[in-house]
Amino acid sequence: MSPTSGRTRGERTAELLLAGAAAVSAAAVLGILVFLAILAAPAWQGAAHVFTWDWRPFHGHYGILPMVVGSLLLALTALLLALPVAIGIAAFAHGLGPRRLARIVLAAVHAMTGIPTIVYAFVSAMLLVPFVREVFVHGSGYSLLSAALVLSVLILPTIVLVVHAHWHSMGKELERTCAALGIPRGRAVLRVLLPLSRRGLLTAAVLGFARALGDTMIALLLSGNAAQVPGSALDGFRTLTAHIALVVATDTQDAAYASIFAAGLILLLVAAAASLTARRLGAGNGRTEAARAAPR
């Protein structure tokens, strides 16, 4: 190699390998998207009746719309439950609470990102579901209420960490200004930081929603999996994620498969839209925190 380039052949090969790895990683999601789209193709040809309200696989009805509604309802409910609590916790960690306790709370939130969703799902299926059944009498306990409660706990750390990272990125300057104006720290968080952080809150909400929508185990174990639109918070229902798992597990005939690939495609598109939106909103702020609490 020419000495002026300053690179040996080995170095070039290495660089090429690194670039190749990065290309594979970044293109993987595109590959998955195209692949699912191809497998879901029969769903668009109308023969399988995928976009209808009727799921009766043994009668040739493969409608997934009840699951679409179920997924959206569950994710939105969980988000609405989690958001206020998450903001409270973030505010506590950011100045409302005493410093030492705030650190403990923040550490606990970090630890929560490591709790497997199957653990939440298992414990709640054993304890929360019977509890809901007894307290409300109506229904089996496998319900929107149970699933949304637990799911809100699952997405809590995602939201807290994104909000926290956002406030952190807003910087010391703001805090100093507030201190110089004689605003107590707690009040500064409530009256200055919080009103100024619409973007951060929106980012957190989008990421939390995506995380809720993509979760499988909690819905699978707590929703009752009835393919219907829930009429009340105590009714059973089914999400897209659980639907995929159930259809694969029960080994139905090939015709049903188009419906799960369509379901997967919907989930993937929503997730992709969410990460693009979060990216645009957040503009790189607190990326590592967000990645640590990333959807799974």
Partner: peptide, 18 residues
């Protein structure tokens, strides 16, 4: 590439299984 990696991070695990 960052966008691609972000989107990969967002893929729900059941979709990966699918």
């Amino acid at each position: 590439l960052d966008i691609g990696v972000d989107m990969l991070a967002g893929v729900p695990s059941v979709v990966m299984g699918l």
